[in-house]
Simulated assay, not measured.
Amino acid sequence: MKVLYVAYARMPTEKAHGIQIASMCSALGDQGAQVTLLVPTWTNHLTVSVFDYYSITSNFSIEYLPAGPHLPGRLGYVLRKILFAMSVFRRAGRVECDAVITRSQWVTWMLSRRCKVFYEIHDFPGLRRRFWWRLIRGARGYISTNQFKADKLCRIFGVSPKRVLVAPNGYEPKLFEFAADKNELRRELSLPAHKRIVLYTGNVYGWKGVETLAHAARMLPELLFVFVGGTDRDIVRFREEHKDAESILLVPHQRHSLVPRYLRAADILVLPNSASTIESRVYTSPVKLFEYLASGTPVVASDLPSVREIVDERHVHFFAPDDATSLVQALRDILVQPSEAATRAARGRELVRAFSWDKRARNILMHIRALR
C-alpha cells in the first residue's frame, strides 16, 4: 500500500507531535506500507536527520515542499498552511497513492476528490466549527486519538462510527530495551545518586501544568525536581521565574532516544497537565503518558478525562489538576508506600504493551482497507 503522510510541521522538532509523526511513518513502513512523508521546507536549527533524531528505521522517504515565505500574524499563518496544501496537491497529482493520512484540514479539502484521505483528529475548533467540517467532510475516514473526539464527531456531524477509528498515541518498546540500573543511569546522566528524583519530560509552557509542579518543588525541598526538555526560549523564561528554587534542576532538550534513560533514572514521574484548557482536559492523548508507563517508574498524573481514557487508580496515582497541595500529597503517598507504587507501576507497564506504534499502525492500515 502506498501512503502519503502529510504533516504541516518542522521536522525534526523538539515537540511531541514530531515523535508521533516520525514514529507512525516508521511503524507504517514496518507493517509493509510504502510511506512518503511530506513536510514544509523550513529552516531548522536541528541539523540531524529525522531518522537519527528519533532513532527510527529509515524505511520511509521524506519530501520537503514549499509553504511560501514567512508572513507575520494569524493571516500569514493560515496563508502558509494553504500554500503548503497547494504544494501537496500538486505533488499528489504526479504519483498515485492508495491513501493520504494527514491532520491538515486544508490538505484534506484539496485532496479528498482526488485521493482517499484519512483525517487524523487531534483537537476540535472552538469557533468556525462548521467551516472546519466543510474542509474535512470529504475524507474517506477519520482517525481520532481518543474516544471523546470520536464521539463528538459522530454526535455533532452525524458521521457513521464505522468511518472513525479510535487510535490513541503510543510508544516504541525498543527504546526501553536496556538493562542499566538506576545507579548506572544516574552516573551516565550526571544526576545525583542519593537524592529522590521527581522527573518531568516535555515542554515547559501553559497547559502542560509545569507551574503546578514547580510550586510543588518549593513545598518539598528535600526532593529534586528534574525538568527535561523545552525550547531554548521557554527554558530561559522558566529558569528566570524559578531561579530561587534550589530543588529544581533544568535539563535542556534531549534527543528522544535518551528520554527512556531519564525516565528509568527517576523515582517518580509526573504528568501535571492543567485543566485550564479543553485541549488538556479532553482532547490530548499524551505521548509522555505511554512512555512513562513503559518505563516501569511510578507515575503521578492529573485527574483529567483525557488521562483516564488510558489509565485509572490501578496504574497511577492521581492528583487534582492545578493543585500543588494535592500533587504534594500524591508524591508523599508514593514515598511512604513504595510497594503499592511499584505494584501500580507494574500494572501500568503491562497495560501499555497494547499501545505500541506498530499496533497503532496495524489498526490504521486495517481501517484504510476496510473503507477502500
Results as ranks from 00 to 15, higher is better:
R187M: 10
R233L: 12
A85F: 05
A99M: 07
Y5P: 00
H242E: 06
I156E: 15
V78Q: 12
Q254G: 05
L250C: 11
V270A: 04
D232C: 02
G206F: 09
H17S: 08
V259G: 02
T343G: 06
L111G: 07
D52Q: 15
T212E: 10
D323V: 01
V6A: 05
L249I: 00
D267C: 03
D312K: 05
L83H: 05
T277E: 14
L83V: 06
G126T: 15
R314D: 15
L165Y: 12
D358K: 11
F318H: 08
V78M: 10
G141K: 13
R308V: 03
L304S: 08
G348P: 00
D358V: 11
I19V: 15
S190P: 00
L224V: 03
I197V: 13
A139I: 05
T277M: 11
S302V: 04
V287N: 10
I56H: 08
Q34R: 09
A361H: 02
S49N: 08
E96K: 14
D333F: 06
K152N: 03
R137F: 03
T297V: 14
L165P: 01
A16F: 09
A354V: 01
E177G: 01
S356Y: 09
L250I: 14
V50E: 15
L127M: 13
R129Y: 11
P40E: 14
I101K: 02
R349M: 04
R308M: 06
R103N: 11
L199P: 00
V78P: 00
A9I: 13
N203F: 10
L28I: 03
A217L: 08
L224D: 09
I334T: 04
D303R: 14
P260V: 02
Y262Q: 03
W42N: 04
V3R: 01
L271G: 03
E222A: 12
E309T: 10
E222P: 00
S49T: 15
R128Q: 13
P221L: 11
V159I: 15
D244V: 02
P321T: 07
H122E: 14
S285K: 02
A167F: 04
L199H: 04
K81W: 12
T231W: 07
E279M: 09
T108I: 03
N273Y: 15
D234P: 00
I368A: 04
E350R: 11
E120L: 05
V100R: 06
T212A: 07
S23M: 08
C97W: 11
R155W: 08
Y205R: 13
M366N: 13
Q31L: 05
I197M: 15
Q254L: 09
V300Y: 07
H315K: 03
H194A: 11
K243W: 12
A9R: 15
E172L: 11
S339A: 13
T13D: 13
T41I: 02
A342H: 12
G138R: 06
D312I: 04
A193W: 04
W106I: 00
P252W: 12
A341C: 06
D358I: 08
L335S: 05
K182L: 02
L79W: 14
T41E: 15
V226F: 13
E211G: 00
L28E: 04
R103V: 01
D98R: 01
W132K: 01
P298T: 07
L351W: 07
F176D: 03
L365M: 11
I278F: 13
K288L: 04
T277N: 09
A275F: 10
